[in-house]
């Protein structure tokens, strides 16, 4: 059952404990410790950055969205009953805002040239041939070859502990039940791209 699966998405790449540390900081802030708010912001801003950037926003758009998320938290603090929910509340709020801004930007999605360059597999050169053998570059290239939906889904699940699949399904325009399988397919595509003979990475069309 999909709803059950979404609750069991394993703790992924956010360092284990980030979410419970966030809950602890939130609780202390709610009890009057302003330094704990600084801790919460320091802890969760990097997570929000990566989640928001999955929506292909520019640096400036992404920073605006992260800012709006923190303003909303300060204003709606009392609406969060369970401190353990604060991480999920923050990422969900930021994804909604990112989705709004990216939908509005429509076709003229803005990407910084440097990021664009990193997304487009480059022409092989003597230098890049050497660099491409580096495992991280190969992985980066394989990610760049994935379609936009896979890139977004993988980035969100890589940084969120338990993504809200219902909200994700709206963002990604796919049924809730297909997110788990899609995640699996995206990872499988990535594996395929990585196991391809390295010669194929270097520009020959077939």
């Amino acid at each position: 059952m999909t709803a059950g699966q979404s609750g069991r998405v394993p703790e992924t790449s956010a360092a284990p404990g980030v979410w419970s540390v966030a809950a602890d900081a939130f609780e202390r802030w709610r009890d009057g410790d302003l330094d704990a708010l600084d801790e919460l912001v320091a802890l969760m801003t990097p997570v929000l950055w990566h989640v928001v950037r999955a929506y292909r926003l520019s640096h400036e758009q992404a920073e605006d969205v992260v800012q709006s998320t923190w303003l909303a938290l300060v204003r709606r603090r009392d609406a969060i009953d369970d401190p353990q929910a604060v991480g999920g509340w923050l990422t969900l709020t930021s994804r909604r805002a990112a989705w709004r801004v990216s939908a509005r930007a429509g076709s003229h999605v803005t990407l910084e040239p440097d990021v664009l360059e990193r997304h487009v597999p480059s022409e092989p050169s003597a230098e890049s041939t050497v660099v491409a053998h580096d495992e991280r570059d190969l992985l980066w290239r394989a990610v760049a070859e994935l379609d936009e939906r896979c890139q977004r889904l993988l980035r969100v699940v890589a940084f969120e502990q338990r993504p809200d699949y219902a909200a994700l399904s709206a963002d990604l325009q796919m049924p809730v039940g297909s997110i788990g399988p899609t995640r699996g397919r995206c990872l499988a595509k990535l594996r395929t791209a990585l196991t391809r003979p390295s010669g194929n990475d270097l520009g020959s069309p077939t």
Binding site: S13, T45, H59, E63, Q67, L154, A158
Partner: peptide
């Protein structure tokens, strides 16, 4: 997924000063 998160942290890092501004 952990490996991918590390990669995104490295290739699209949080901008300098963002945490302080927030």
């Amino acid at each position: 997924l952990r490996q991918l998160a590390d990669l995104w942290r490295e290739r699209d890092p949080v901008p300098d000063g963002l945490v302080g501004r927030m």
